[in-house]
Design a protein around this nucleic acid. Structure first.
Lengths: 141, 141
DNA sequence: CTTGACCTTCCAGTGACTGGAGGCCCCACA
DNA sequence: TGTGGGGCCTCCAGTCACTGGAAGGTCAAG
């Protein structure tokens, strides 16, 4: 298979597949013309990666998960630990977003949203006492 | 005030303040020694930025919000629109994370997490039918 | 006069891609 | 046999919002 075929079958953009090769997640063979040649097992791995990424695992997590997947002597506890840590991070992120959401929704509901300049949203941003929504800053929306 | 003072008073790292100047969010004056000299109004603006960022507004949103804040003839509807769009994005993100969370929690609960290799988490990643958690990919955790 | 804290600029790296330029390669059709 | 168009290649730059570090100037205290 050429890259276009695996892209279509895996649902991943060709660019992303090349990137995954670059960082060593996959090692497709090469034809005489220099084109990447993918086998079924490469496709399988890409599908695995696509699903792990869709669950929000980082690339490094994916590396670990693939290594565990290929390691017949793995212990399921190792996998579970990775997943649990990730789950915890998701929970933290959700909590942070919900805190932001609450503050923001409150402000929005207080704003008339008409043609007059008075705006409680700006008032709050300009004069609010100390911290914003949560202590942890609002990175990575 | 020097940058260290405003950093302390605003809670933003000095690096970040320099960055905000670089991208034109603030324009502190300069002393003869080349040091940035901040006035109260600069500090005020930085505090505004810190709070807007803590609510998850992008830098571009912040630029807009500050412009509106300084525009006496603004209409609060403009501000509200920015905030509502942002709120919508937060809601989308929360929904996406909750979908991931649900899938992941289910998988984790099915995994024994012991010293045997059998692992439903890996099974799912390897053989799950089509999409991952949600259709939208899991970027930006 | 030295020490050490503070300030400056500039450059590089983060994560996970994404876009685009410039250039082969391959196949079908005239 | 030429040509056109699509697919493939590599390499470079950009994204977002910082963050770290190196190399060097400045300032106040002792």
């Amino acid at each position: 298979m050429n890259i276009g075929d695996v892209a279509q079958r895996s649902g991943l953009p060709a660019k992303t597949i090349r990137y995954y090769e670059e960082i060593g997640l996959i090692r497709p063979q090469r034809g005489e013309n220099g084109y990447r040649r993918f086998r079924e097992q490469d496709l399988h791995k890409l599908a695995f990666l696509g699903r792990a990424r869709a669950l929000g695992f980082t690339i490094e997590d994916c590396r670990t998960l693939i290594a565990l997947y290929e390691d017949e002597s793995r212990e399921s506890g190792q996998v579970k630990r990775v997943a649990e840590e990730h789950l915890q991070q998701i929970d933290d992120k959700i909590a942070q977003l919900q805190s932001m959401r609450a503050t923001l929704a409150e402000l929005v509901s207080c704003c008339a949203g008409d043609d007059r300049p008075d705006c409680p949203i700006l008032e709050d941003l300009a004069h609010h006492g100390a911290d914003g929504a949560t202590e942890g800053k609002g990175r990575a929306l």
